[in-house]
């Protein structure tokens, strides 16, 4: 009687343990995906980048108040700016956590399948370089080389010198152009590219124009005459028409 019941329990316990691992494997989040197509990340990154810079939402709001385009109750109205300024924090979080994070996902995810994703990767690199150039222009030294290294254990990214960041951005722009010119049969974005609807040529023009802007910014610390002349030498490679503007409409 007793032996029998003990045996039953032991068998039961053994059975439960073998079934346990499978029974307990229910922690997969079924509400949200762990991977998404590049075609959803590109427009998300573009909107976030615009929001982080835009008036009424991000960094530009403060300048808009300074230049009397807008008014506000907060300190910028008295030409003061505090580190706790809402639009400053909003823009900072938006550009790093969303715009740059999504661009990095496009670059890493796309690079695994370069043959098909090179165009997305190229656009992402150009946008990333542009985003960091804006951060440097606003703040000077900003986290750059340690950005998005959390999985590698970087909890508090260091601030890199602006003079170290700028040259890397120029390289990044060249890589972007190379990716765009790279694979012939890579998938091209269409309506999911909110800026140029997938037009490679316009993207290359934009990248060159951004390079021109970066050189212009650097002119007082470095002689950039030859680089600027090279770019200006082929105006067809630069944005030179309204229809080529690096922008998109925020209408709904």
């Amino acid at each position: 009687m007793k032996k029998y019941s003990i045996l039953t329990i032991l068998i039961f316990v053994a059975l439960v343990f073998t079934g346990c691992k499978k029974y307990l494997d229910v922690n997969k989040n079924e509400n949200d995906p762990t991977e998404v197509p590049l075609s959803t990340l590109l427009p998300a990154a573009q909107v976030s980048l615009a929001n982080s810079l835009a008036m009424g939402y991000g960094f530009s709001n403060i300048l808009a108040v300074y230049t009397h385009q807008m008014t506000t109750r907060e300190s910028p109205d008295q030409y003061g700016i505090l580190p706790s300024e809402f639009y400053l924090n909003q823009g900072w979080a938006e550009i790093y956590e969303n715009a740059l994070a999504d661009l990095d996902v496009i670059i890493s995810q796309g690079s695994e399948d370069a043959a098909r994703s090179d165009i997305y990767v190229g656009m992402a690199k150009i946008l990333k370089a542009y985003a960091f150039s804006q951060l440097v222009d606003i703040f000077g030294d900003v986290p750059f080389s340690d950005f998005n290294k959390f999985p590698e254990g970087v909890r508090t990214p260091k601030f890199d010198g602006s003079s170290d960041i700028y040259p890397t951005l120029l390289t990044m722009l060249d890589e972007g152009i190379a990716s765009l010119n790279g694979t012939e049969n890579a998938t091209s974005p269409t309506s999911d590219d909110l800026i140029y609807k997938g037009d490679k040529t316009k993207w290359i023009k934009a990248a060159n124009t951004i390079k021109l802007k970066l050189y212009t910014q650097m002119r007082k610390v470095k002689d950039v005459q030859s680089e600027v002349q090279a770019l200006l030498g082929t105006p067809a490679n630069l944005i030179n028409m309204t229809s080529e503007s690096f922008y998109f409409l925020m209408d709904h």
């Binding site: 922690n27 989040n29 995906p33 762990t34 427009p43 998300a44 976030s48 994070a101 909110l194 209408d251």
Partner: peptide, 25 residues
């Protein structure tokens, strides 16, 4: 708490009809 085992993406609302997704923060 459950379903906090891995990083996920969130589906955002469409922007001018274009579907969007962003890496979760």
């Amino acid at each position: 708490s459950p379903w906090n085992g891995e990083d996920v993406f969130s589906i955002l609302t469409n922007f001018t009809g274009v579907p969007r997704a962003s890496r979760g923060s």
